[in-house]
Simulated scan of single mutants.
Amino acid sequence: MLFTDDVVLVDESRARVNRKLELWRRTLESKGFRLSRTKTEYMMCDFSATRHEDVKHRILAGWLKWRQASGILCDKRVPQKLKVKFYRTAIRPAMLYGAECWPTKRRHVQQLSVAEMRMLWWFCGHTRRDRVRNEAIRDRVGGAPIEDKLTQHLLRWFGHVQRRPPEAPVRSGVLERVDNVKRDRGRPKLTWDESVKRDVKDWNISKEIVLDRSAWRLAINVPEP
């Protein structure tokens, strides 16, 4: 093994992270490895941020990708099939990054859906003045709506968590309910596990399917041409 990448050290303060980093450096050097400090980055998680802000940030990230590729997506000479493929492989993943951990409300799904339809209208060469129905745009583009892909991300992660042994950290970290977290005003006070229960019920998925990896993949499959 010549190199390794994507190692994350997590702690409550930067000083404690630096102590862990120094321990990693000494351990790696004792085994003949070197730690590149020039590529080391620090990230801070603000757990006081609301879910609405997270969804808004992902939508803005999708539009950023859109602007970077606007020369292709808005070019009438580029085949629409290629535009759709680019949207599915670059723009939509940017909008759904981390979505498997979102306790989404209906308004969050609506915001993502509105952003997606605006993008589909745009690269199909239509505006609101053309008075074309959303259903017609969807039929023309094909594929699954972003709300279905959002549910697919959530349920796929839920299936992965359920198949892990009870002592696995992901089981205790994801499914543990935290009661002292301040939530947004208004009902319902939706949590991640409540979102999962809602989607499992809507998709009519049994517990046996959750524990069966192959059956689970078929159950949550959202086909796209």
Score class of each variant (00 low, 15 high):
Pro145Phe: 05
Ser30Tyr: 10
Val7Glu: 09
Met95Thr: 00
Glu53Ala: 15
Ser195Ile: 02
Val210Asn: 05
Arg140Tyr: 08
Gln162Phe: 01
Thr127Tyr: 07
Met117Glu: 03
Gly142Val: 07
Lys197Glu: 12
Arg187His: 13
Leu150Trp: 07
Lys197Gly: 05
Asp75Lys: 06
Trp66Asp: 00
Ser36Trp: 06
Ser172Met: 03
Asp202Glu: 13
Ser36Gln: 14
Val210Gly: 01
Pro225Ala: 15
Leu64Phe: 06
Phe3Tyr: 14
Glu100Lys: 07
Arg163Gly: 04
Leu28Gln: 05
Gly71Lys: 02
Arg131Thr: 04
Lys189Gly: 02
Phe47Gln: 07
Val210Lys: 06
Leu154Pro: 02
Phe86Gly: 00
Ile137Leu: 14
Ile137Thr: 11
Thr127Glu: 07
Arg107Ile: 12
Thr151Lys: 13
Glu29Arg: 14
Gly143Trp: 02
Ala215Gly: 13
Arg164Thr: 05
Lys207His: 09
Tyr42Ser: 11
Ile220Lys: 01
Thr40Gly: 06
His57Glu: 13
Ala144Gly: 05
Pro166Ser: 10
Leu218Gly: 14
Gln162Arg: 09
Asn221Leu: 08
Arg171Cys: 13
Thr4Gly: 13
Thr127Val: 07
Asn221Phe: 04
Val174Ala: 13
Glu41Val: 14
Pro169Met: 09
Ala61Leu: 10
Gln152Asp: 08
Ser214Met: 08
Ala94Tyr: 06
Ser13Val: 08
